[in-house]
């Protein structure tokens, strides 16, 4: 079933056409890797899908319900989560960062604590709870950001190069987490250059060239 679908999605910066996507449909239960050269618009596409940037034009459907880009609907924000290439952690604590989206959704304290504990265990962050977020390494920050997204159980997860600038061990930990993120009801798109990530089993590849999406069969090897 198509979860998130867009058609005629266009975005230009100054005079340069960055995106001109005829159709793109993300299905529940599928995982995607989004590849393309630097500057090909991978980040921009993910940011538009998450409602952080707005496209110049195009239509969007979530589970067959049409939605507007201006303004991006609040109900859709609860289903779609975007994680930056270098995630921003709030200057609070690791646990408070993970709880942030739960607070925004009005989840009551006891349930919130239970979910945060589960997320901490999932991302193996237990030993970092007392460390200020600003003192964490790149890989640890990425894991906190993944836990912060995981705990909200989004239907669509959009990850922007989660393994860029990480050392080998952190990279592997991040890949393992990303691999175990989604269930049959949800989908994930990972923008990346990382060969290990691209080669993961059961991933469909979306290749961005000249602002257009080429699917598996057309993509260069």
């Amino acid at each position: 079933m198509s979860l998130l679908a867009v058609a005629g999605l266009a975005k230009s910066f100054a005079d340069r056409r960055l995106l001109a996507i005829e159709t793109l449909s993300l299905s529940a239960g599928e995982r995607y890797v989004l590849t393309g050269e630097n500057g090909s618009g991978k980040s921009t596409l993910l940011r538009i899908l998450a409602g952080i940037d707005a496209p110049d034009g195009g239509s969007g459907h979530f589970r067959e319900h049409r939605f507007d880009w201006h303004p991006y609907p609040d109900w859709l924000r609860r289903e779609v989560i975007y994680v930056h290439q270098q995630p921003y952690l709030f200057h609070t604590s690791v646990a408070e960062n993970i709880a942030y989206g739960l607070r925004a959704r009005g989840i009551e304290a006891s349930e919130r604590e239970r979910l945060v504990r589960a997320a901490i265990a999932w991302a193996r962050l237990g030993h970092l709870l007392r460390t200020p977020p600003q003192k964490l390494s790149g890989g640890e920050r990425q894991r906190v950001a993944l836990a912060r997204a995981w705990v909200l159980a989004p239907k669509v997860l959009l990850l922007d190069e989660p393994t860029a600038n990480l050392d080998a061990e952190s990279r592997q930990q991040t890949i393992d987490l990303v691999h175990g993120f989604c269930g049959p009801e949800s989908t994930a798109v990972v923008a990346c250059h990382d060969r290990d990530m691209i080669a993961l089993a059961n991933r469909r590849r979306l290749h961005l060239v000249d602002g257009e999406i080429r699917h598996d069969s057309e993509a260069a090897p």
Partner: peptide, 21 residues
Amino acid sequence: DPRARETAVALGASGARVAWT
């Protein structure tokens, strides 16, 4: 940092919560 606002928005915070954050 512009990512602070984007992160709050992406995690579903309302306008008032984004401002407070």
